[in-house]
């Protein structure tokens, strides 16, 4: 698919404006592209390269380093099941196997209806609440097999409307009104803040 929409370009511009160097905005912008299309398209990477002033190869270099970015379409719901040590000890792998059997796909695969993708993932910082998973980065804790089945049911029949499609992270973005902004300066020229300078300790008197 595609380059950023006009609306998302505005969002992108605001994100870029919060950084001293445009390239710093790259990961948030890749998320924006993924939110728009459900995955990061080649066109989108080329567009981001233009927006932050680097080559598409550099965007791909960054994009491909991070596992959240998928460069091909995945299911509407990406289910990341943790099998790392804390979860493994309390049944994470068994939950993964149950999920694979129930959905008829292997980890990494997507169901034919395009609804679900399962991933076998590393620790998702809910270690005391295993076995756990994230569906589109929304947590489900201490799941039994039937909890899992109910979740799938709810997602299928739409009763679980709290989970946005894959790619959407936080529903609220940071927005700094211009008149509240302290100001973002260039790394080359930004000086010591005046308020700090005026609060420096008096230099001790010489030879005192």
């Amino acid at each position: 698919m595609s380059r950023l929409t006009a609306q998302n370009q505005e969002v992108a511009a605001e994100i870029i404006s919060r950084y001293p160097r445009a390239k710093s905005a790259l990961i948030p912008l890749l998320h924006l592209a993924q939110e728009q299309d459900g995955y990061v398209a080649d066109d989108a990477m080329e567009h981001l390269a233009e927006l932050v002033g680097v080559t598409p190869a550099e965007v791909l270099g960054t994009c491909s380093f991070y596992e959240m970015f998928v460069r091909h379409p995945v299911g509407k719901y990406k289910i990341d099941i943790c099998t790392n040590i804390s979860c493994q000890l309390v049944g994470g792998e068994e939950l993964l196997h149950h999920a694979e059997e129930t959905l008829g796909i292997r980890a990494g695969g997507t169901t034919d209806d395009g609804l679900f993708t399962i991933e076998d993932v590393e620790c998702i910082a809910a270690c005391t609440e295993g076995p756990c998973l994230q569906v589109n980065y929304r947590y489900e804790y201490r799941l039994s097999n039937s909890d899992f089945d109910n979740m799938i049911e709810g997602l299928r029949d739409g009763s679980r409307d709290d989970v946005p499609p894959h790619g959407t992270l936080g529903l609220t973005r940071q927005h700094i009104p211009q008149d509240h902004l302290a100001g973002i300066g260039s790394p080359e020229t930004t000086p010591m803040p005046a308020w700090f300078e005026s609060r420096q300790p008096e230099p001790e008197a010489e030879g005192a």
Partner: peptide, 13 residues
């Protein structure tokens, strides 16, 4: 007179 920006940034796994 103190002015400080705190910018939310996030990673990608």
């Amino acid at each position: 007179d103190v002015s400080i920006d705190v910018v939310l940034h996030w990673g990608a796994g």
